[in-house]
Write a protein that binds this DNA or RNA. Structure first.
Lengths: 197, 197
DNA sequence: ATAATTCCACCGACCGATCGGTCGGTTTTC
DNA sequence: GAAAACCGACCGATCGGTCGGTGGAATTAT
């Protein structure tokens, strides 16, 4: 067993990536299992060899989107001591994740609210809440450090920040003006000092 | 003809209101024409007497949502001379529209991106763009008035503001903490001075 | 005033298509 | 040769949409 046991990469991952692409482009409901199978040059029967249901695929895609966010944002800033710098980095990384062409799972998670079976649904919602809480706590830390006296609570600021970032996929066009590298400093400054400094 | 010619109110409006409620609660795709008809105590055949297709209903709902926004936000602030006060009022009114239980059409318009026939789709998208432009222009005015030197462009600020407001429906619970009346001043201050003043 | 006609909201059975999902059997892989 | 991967025909259900017809109110003719 010298590095074997693998090969064929683990086709589940490939399938999920393709499915995520289609779900993002056409929407979950408008994408049939036949569409997914065809895009993978599989039959529908073959596809069902790997997944039990369409819901299960959506669940895995959403879970993977949350894995990505935790990996590329939460874990990535653990080492940063200064709260303000940590928050600035979170903003940058989160925007980069949302705009990443590679991570279409994230957009699917943001947009689709197809009713999953309750147990699966609860798992996803809990992880989403955890992330909001993470951002809220970080903002509270920065507020404390800066001695903020304003009326903006950490919770409202977190929800506003996540709202403006998570809404980007609704209007962003890679070929349009306002590119990612312009967006990051502007959204950051908006949160830290408003739009009229 | 003494005030006659009416009666029966105009059932198309009633139908659209019911459809909007169902579309918002269950989603457009997950709501069948039978569901809509049943909620109105109609048969599906009877429903199709009033509308040609499900797409047409969605189009009218979205158009109506844009009517509401123009009426209750854009037109409502026309009389306000001072740009800053006008912008503050726009923020308040827009949040109130998004949170209004009565205007479920708005949430439907924000969330659903079902592919309408191109001509209808273009109309909706154009009106959305017009509204973004309206907010962008207003922000630019305030920036000029205040002599803003920062790096936040009016366009980025407009998209961020609309993002944080239009995202509210994703997390807002009427029974939760963070009510509308708390939200409005906090979102306003966030845009004007950031979260750490 | 009444009979005939028009009109309109509505019904309910039906259609073709498509959907998610199944299953028995065949091919591929190691 | 066993096990995993895969095929393709098939199923029941549901979908958006159609259509011939019906009953009653309004309109017109007589």
């Amino acid at each position: 067993m010298s590095g074997v046991t693998r090969e064929a990469v683990d086709s589940r991952q490939d399938i999920l990536r393709t499915a995520a692409r289609l779900f993002q482009q056409r929407g979950y409901d408008a994408t049939s299992m036949n569409d997914v199978a065809a895009a993978l040059k599989l039959s529908k029967g073959g596809l069902y060899h790997h997944f039990q249901s369409k819901d299960e695929m959506l669940f895995h895609i959403m879970n993977h989107a949350l894995d990505i966010t935790e990996e590329r944002v939460v874990k990535a800033v653990r080492g940063i001591q200064n709260p303000e710098e940590r928050l600035r980095t979170v903003i940058r990384l989160h925007i980069e994740v949302v705009l990443s062409v590679r991570d279409r799972e994230v957009t699917v998670m943001l947009h689709e609210n197809h009713p999953l079976p309750p147990s699966l649904r609860k798992q996803i919602n809990q992880r989403k809440k955890d992330y909001i809480h993470f951002v809220e706590g970080l903002i509270a830390e920065v507020q404390k450090q800066k001695g903020t006296k304003g009326t903006v609570s950490a919770r409202a600021a977190a929800l506003a920040l996540l709202g403006m970032i998570n809404w980007i996929y609704q209007w962003y066009k890679p070929e349009g003006r306002l590119q990612a590298q312009d967006l990051i400093p502007q959204y950051t400054e908006l949160l830290f000092a408003g739009a009229f400094q």
